[in-house]
Design a protein around this nucleic acid. Structure first.
Lengths: 104, 104
DNA sequence: AATAACTATATTGTAATACTATATAGCTAG
DNA sequence: CTAGCTATATAGTATTACAATATAGTTATT
């Protein structure tokens, strides 16, 4: 998989998953990992950045089978960002496909 | 437009356009510019890199309305790279869409 | 209780690549 | 001859994913 394709998209995926329900970091890594290669390091950096930028709030919750988990909750700002990124993404895919399929 | 989405994709677009016919740098900028914002600086750096990596050969040709143009021709290696990137791109889009639409 | 395996969060340093700004210069029209 | 268009090119910066590594709680096995 081309690592460059992921630039910006991982952030969108995180926001998109969190728009459905609160999740913790490790869980996000596993969900996204089903579709593409991603390391925990990458995910935690994204989570830290987006938290700093006000897209999430967080809370700790104990786990029955392991250490406590930090859950992420989308803020209003986060929801808006998610919708904006999703819209941009779909437009982008259409543009790229048009460029590639086009017979000039 | 999210600049990050373009990472890796611009390279693929250049290869894809050149798989149809030889083009010169400025022409590529204009064609890609129809679908997304892109500066000449970015394009020429990509062209230089891909030339150095053996995906193109180049030749100069005089123009009737301006300075001489440097045309780019895909090599066999370039054609293979283009097909590979295109395949990866389509798979990537499917994966991302699945992640975003999924009800978990 | 000691150890290994699993779960979970986090940081540092590096690599890849797009953007901004700028430089250079040929050609054409007024 | 000058302005505007065409065309190629480079230097410095910013963003973001990856690899490697550190830390530590929990569970199961010996």
């Amino acid at each position: 998989m081309n690592a460059q394709f992921k630039k910006g998209v991982l952030e969108m995926c995180v926001l998109s998953l969190l728009s459905k329900k609160d999740m913790y970091g490790y869980e996000l890594t596993e969900q996204i990992g089903k579709e593409m290669a991603v390391t925990t390091g990458t995910l935690y950096i994204i989570l830290k950045r987006l938290t700093d930028e006000g897209y999430f709030t967080t809370y700790l919750k104990e786990s029955s089978d392991g250490p406590a988990r930090k859950y992420y909750t989308l803020t209003e700002k986060g929801h808006h960002k998610q919708e904006e990124l999703k819209k941009n993404w779909h437009q982008f895919v259409v543009s790229v496909n048009r460029l590639m399929e086009e017979v000039l």
